[in-house]
Design a protein around this nucleic acid. Structure first.
Length: 519
DNA sequence: AACAAGGAAGGGA
DNA sequence: TCCCTTCCTTGTT
């Protein structure tokens, strides 16, 4: 169900324009007005074309999720048939689909699970979620985003931008080979269908049997998510022109997922009277958050929670997933992943939203308006003038806007290194470059294609996408002309200051933090 | 061409 | 004064 969401793009307008619509086996696209603009969502997935049994390619990379829609309805036989019927419109519309057909996963990978060489906490969490997921919950009329769904959406992150010089494969090439560890993902519909069939076999006499992909139908017909976020179907034409053009469309989805996380967190903040910034939590607030998250995910309560976690928020944020797992084998992964989402969500906030802990109840996540600006901030716009514009948060949104302050929260980490949580002021930021790089490194789910750890213990990291890292740095500092040449010059200044050093074996784009800056 | 290294000048807090 | 930013040259990959 999650990949379905990727087909809809956040849009500020209702989808008044005619929809592409399947009308049955003929698969004719017709233009018609819809009383309910969302009613076409389920129709876009003509499940009658799916075989009832196995034998269909249901394991797909998330990246190519929209392609499953094409592939399911567009096998070769149908193509020939429809061409012979002279359905010029459809043929034209899908004339390039053959070149976009899903390439089967490499044979080295198992059918249902593509292992990730560097499975992130979020990925592992999703895998856990995927394998233990109760199919019946798919039909829930209220598909609120839980952590797993957010995580999955976070893993649809597009690869590096076209102008990038990194080695990240393009969306086209990504289909044919193992993906970058940080962006690969999959949807195993086959396992879902098998679970559904098993349930049907186990309950042969129940009247609740749902034939003909009823489960998927219910999922697709459930437009609560789309209505809630005013989403519209993704125009298939955009795929004809190449996935590169679609790349930017994924970013709103990512922001949407982040927005969900932030809003959920916002509610929890209000309930627990805690800051949205985990680094600002006291030990008691850490315990409150842990309990709340355990309850939220219906995880078993942990005995001696206070004894197990004596850290404050700053120290908690530094704990590894392994440490979480060691302390809480059943829940550690989920809690760590959830904490990563909180950290990532808070790190993305503009400075005016990052306030000291004086009034935690007033600390809010970005408003929709600010998230929109965040999208602009994240996208690779060449229009640098746009970034110079300072905006005032829109008080008409449904979150409370607080009085703007330009406080940058400085915390001291457990290692004693001063840590700044990435605030931005109107004219740039006081964040140091090395702190910014660590910030990027701390969110591999988002920035793993741009910068990643080579050896975290030694503080060695590699800039995979120098252009992107430089752009991110320039945007953070409000320096539109920033490029890697300048950024690397700044990094080299750290050699003299003892913040960074050259690696033993000099490698391009590989740097190393000096102790204790990488702690 | 992209990157590495480093000198020099200057700006902003 | 610090921390970059910007520009530059030279050398390497």
């Amino acid at each position: 169900m999650e990949y379905e969401k990727m087909l809809y793009m956040a849009n500020s307008e209702m989808p008044h324009s005619p929809h592409l619509k399947h009308t049955g086996p003929e698969q004719q696209f017709v233009s018609q007005s819809q009383p309910d603009p969302y009613s076409a969502y389920a129709d876009n997935f003509d499940l009658s074309l799916l075989p009832q049994d196995s034998g269909i390619p249901t394991t797909v990379y998330q990246y190519n999720a929209p392609q499953i829609k094409i592939e399911c309805v567009w096998d070769q036989e149908q193509q020939q048939q429809q061409q012979s019927q002279g359905q010029q419109q459809l043929t034209t519309r899908y004339s390039t689909s053959s070149s976009h057909q899903l390439i089967p996963p490499p044979p080295a990978y198992p059918h249902s699970v593509y292992p990730s060489p560097q499975s992130s906490p979020l990925q592992s969490e999703f895998l856990k979620f995927n394998t233990s997921y109760d199919c019946t919950s798919l039909s829930s009329p209220c598909p609120s985003l839980d952590a797993a769904s957010i995580k999955q959406e976070l893993h649809i992150l597009p690869p590096s931008p076209p102008e990038s010089n990194c080695e990240t494969p393009s969306p086209r090439s990504v289909k044919a080979e193992p993906l970058d560890a940080e962006i690969e993902g999959f949807v195993d519909l086959n396992s879902l269908l098998q679970q559904q069939q098993q349930q049907q076999h186990q309950l042969p006499d129940t009247t609740d049997i749902k034939p003909d992909h009823q489960l998927l139908r219910e999922c697709l017909e459930d437009t609560t998510f789309q209505k809630k976020h005013n989403l519209k179907p993704l125009a298939l034409e955009s795929f004809i022109g190449g996935l590169a053009e679609v790349r930017g469309d994924f970013e709103p989805v990512i922001s949407l997922a982040l927005e969900h996380a932030k809003r959920e967190a916002d509610a929890i903040c209000a309930e627990l009277q805690i800051s949205p910034d985990p680094n600002a939590w006291t030990s008691a607030q850490v315990h409150a958050w842990l309990r709340s998250t355990l309850a939220q995910f219906k995880l078993p309560p942990v005995n001696n929670l206070e004894l197990q976690f004596s850290e404050d928020g700053t120290a908690l944020a530094l704990l590894s997933e392994e440490e979480f797992m060691r302390r809480m084998p059943e829940s550690g992964s989920t809690l760590h992943a959830q904490l990563e989402i909180w950290k990532m969500a808070y790190a993305d906030q503009p400075t005016q939203q990052q306030q000291p802990q004086l009034e935690p109840i007033q600390q809010q996540w970005p408003t929709d308006y600010q998230l929109q600006n965040l999208d602009e901030y994240n996208e690779d716009s060449e229009d640098d003038e746009e970034m110079e514009v300072t905006t005032t948060p829109d008080v008409s949104t449904n979150t409370t806007t607080t009085t703007s302050t330009t406080t940058t929260s400085n915390n001291t980490t457990a290692s004693g290194v001063k840590r700044t949580t990435g605030g931005r002021t109107g004219g740039g930021s006081h964040i140091h470059l090395w702190q910014f790089l660590k910030e990027l490194l701390s969110t591999p789910q988002v920035n793993g294609t741009a910068i990643r750890w080579i050896d975290r213990n030694k503080g060695i990291f590699k800039i995979e996408d120098s252009v992107r890292v430089a752009k991110l740095w320039g945007r953070r500092k409000n320096r539109p002309a920033m490029n890697y040449d300048k950024l690397s010059r700044s990094i080299r200044q750290y050699y003299k200051k003892g913040i960074m050093k050259k690696t033993e074996r000099s490698q391009r784009l590989v740097y190393q933090f000096c102790h204790p800056y990488h702690q």
